[in-house]
Amino acid sequence: MIILPYGDNALLINLDQRIDEVINAQVIALDEAIRHLPGVTFTIPAYCSLTVGFDTELTTFDTLKEHIGTLNISGGKPEAAKVVYHIPVCYEAPYAPDMEAVTEFTGLATEEIIAQHTAAPFRVFMIGFIAGFAYLGSLPKALYCPRRTDPRRLVEEGAVGLAGYQTGIYPTNAPGGWQLIGKTPVATFRPDNEVPALLKPGDYVQFKSISQEEYISIEEEIKEGTFEPEVSYG
C-alpha cells in the first residue's frame, strides 16, 4: 500500500495495480474505514486505488496517512455474502447495434455471446465516468473486444456495452464508445433517491436475457412502479 499526496487537499492510496477481486475488496474495506473519519470530505474507490479528499482546516495529510497506516486490510477477501442484482437485458436487434461487430471480432455466434454474458455474475469494481456508471468485470477472455473507433455522440440510457474485459450499463444518455450488445429497461441511476446509484462497488450483477415482449412489459411495470430488479444474497 502506497499513500501519496494528491493536490493540497486529497491523498491517493495505491494498492497493487491490478484488476483483481481481492484487491478491489481491500479498496472497499479501506473506503469503509476512512470515509467517515473527521475531516474527510469525499472518497473515490476505484479498481485498485482510493482517492480521499479532506478539509485542510480539520485534518492533514500526515494525520490521515498515519491513521491509514494502522488499518489492517491485509486480510481483505471478496465479500462473504455477495449482493447480486438480477438485471434483465434484451439482446435482440433493435437494442444491440454492435452485436454484429462483436460477433465478427470474437468469432462467436450471437447466442454464444449472450450465453457468456449471462453465465455468471459480474463484480461492480467501481462507479465512474458518469453518475451511476458501474464498471463490471471481468469478462471471459472469449468476449474481449476493443472500444469502437468512432465513439457515439449519444448512447441511450439502459444500453449495455462491452469494452476490453469490462461490461457496463449506461445510467443516463451519454456519449460513449462501448460496443452495445443489449439494453435493460431497469434504471440504474435514480436521481430522486438519497443514494442515486443503484449499484455500488462490491455488488454483483447477473444479466438475464429477455425478449422484446418482456422488455416492453417490464418497461410498463417500471412506469407503474411495480417492478424492481430481483436481489439475491450469497
Partner: peptide
C-alpha cells in the same frame, strides 16, 4: 488503471496532450 481524478488534476493523454480538469470534470 481507472482511478480517481479531481478538479485541478492535470492529465496527459497518451499522445502527450495536457488537460486541466475543472469543476465539472468526471470523477
Amino acid at each position: 488503471i481507472s482511478s480517481g481524478v479531481i478538479p485541478g488534476t492535470i492529465q496527459v493523454t497518451n499522445a502527450g496532450q495536457p488537460i486541466v480538469l475543472m469543476a465539472d470534470a468526471q470523477s
